[in-house]
Design a protein around this nucleic acid. Structure first.
Lengths: 144, 144
DNA sequence: GTGTTTGCAAACAATTTGCAGAATT
DNA sequence: AATTCTGCAAATTGTTTGCAAACAC
C-alpha cells in the first residue's frame, strides 16, 4: 500500500551496519551516521532501523540489556551477550535447524522461527578484571 | 552484606507468579497485587521483581516485545512469543542441554547459559483471525 | 534501635509520534 | 504534483531512584 522512496540516510544506515560485526544500538548508529549527515536526527535513525527490520534487511536483537541492537546479518545465527559490559557478539556455531520443527510438533499455534541468545562474560571482561567501564547497569544482574 | 527482611508485598508477588503459567508483565503483577494490597506502588513491584530475579527465585524474560515478563519457573525451558498479541507461553519440550557446551567449545569468553525464544502466531490468534485486540504494537513487525 | 522496605513522586532511558518543510518519483 | 522522508520537539512507555515514614528483626 505504501511506496518506499530512496533516502540517502536509510542507505547510509544500512551500509554502516553492513560494515560492522558487532551489534550497534540505535544511538551508536546515530553517532556514527552523524559524521556523514551531521543533521540527521535520532528519530530518523529509529524510523529507518525499524523499517529496515520490518523489510527483513536487518535484524533486531533484544537481549535483556537496555537498548535494542541491530545486525545486518539476516540469516539466523547465535549471539552471546556479555553480562558485564553488555557487548553482543556473534557465535560462529552451526545453526540447529531442527529446533523449529521440534517446537512445531508440539505447539498448537504456528512457529515461525526462534532466537537463541547465550549469556556469560566476554573474553575482554574476563581478562581485565576491572572491566566495569562501559555498561554499569548490568551490575544489577550480578548483584545477587 | 545486606540483610534481607521479610515483606508481605514481596511474598505476595512471588506467590502470585507461582500461581500463573502465562508470564505477566510488571504492570499486570501490579494490577493484581493491588487487589490484596490496594496501596502497593508500582515502584515496589519493580523493586521486588528485580530483587527476586537476582536471587534466582524468578526469571526475567525479555522478548522483543515492549515490557519484560516474569516467570516463577526457574529451571530452563522454552518460550513462544506470539507476534500478534504478544502473549508468552511455555513450550514443554525437552531442553537441549548440549547447547551451552557446544557454545563454550568455540567461544573465547565464559558461557553461563542461554535463552531460546520461539516466535510465531499463537493458537488463539490463528483462530480468531480478528485477534489484534491486545498488543497493536506488534503489527509493526508484521507490516512488511 | 538499626537497617530494610515501602509509597509516592519525580527522574530517566529508549523509543515513538505529529507536523511542516525538504527530497524522491 | 503526489507522496514519502526528514529534522525537530514533544509525547509515550517501561523502569529506576530519592526520600521520609513504616516495618522487620
Amino acid at each position: 500500500m505504501r511506496a518506499l522512496k530512496y533516502s540517502r540516510q536509510r542507505e547510509s544506515i544500512l551500509e554502516f551496519l553492513q560494515g560492522r560485526d558487532d551489534h550497534p544500538t540505535a544511538d551508536t548508529v546515530y553517532m556514527n551516521i552523524r559524521r556523514i549527515y551531521p543533521n540527521i536526527s535520532l528519530g530518523t535513525v529509529y524510523r529507518n532501523l525499524s523499517l529496515l527490520a520490518s523489510l527483513g534487511e536487518i535484524r533486531r536483537i533484544t537481549c535483556e540489556d537496555g537498548a535494542d541492537r541491530f545486525d545486518a546479518v539476516t540469516k539466523p545465527h547465535y549471539h552471546v551477550v556479555c553480562r558485564r559490559c553488555g557487548r553482543v557478539e556473534d557465535l560462529h556455531m552451526k545453526w540447529e535447524e531442527d529446533e523449529d520443527r521440534r517446537a512445531a510438533d508440539i505447539y498448537r499455534g504456528r512457529i515461525e522461527g526462534h532466537t537463541t541468545c547465550f549469556y556469560g562474560i566476554c573474553a575482554r571482561c574476563l581478562e581485565e578484571e576491572s572491566c566495569g567501564e562501559k555498561n554499569e547497569k548490568n551490575s544489577l544482574t550480578a548483584m545477587a
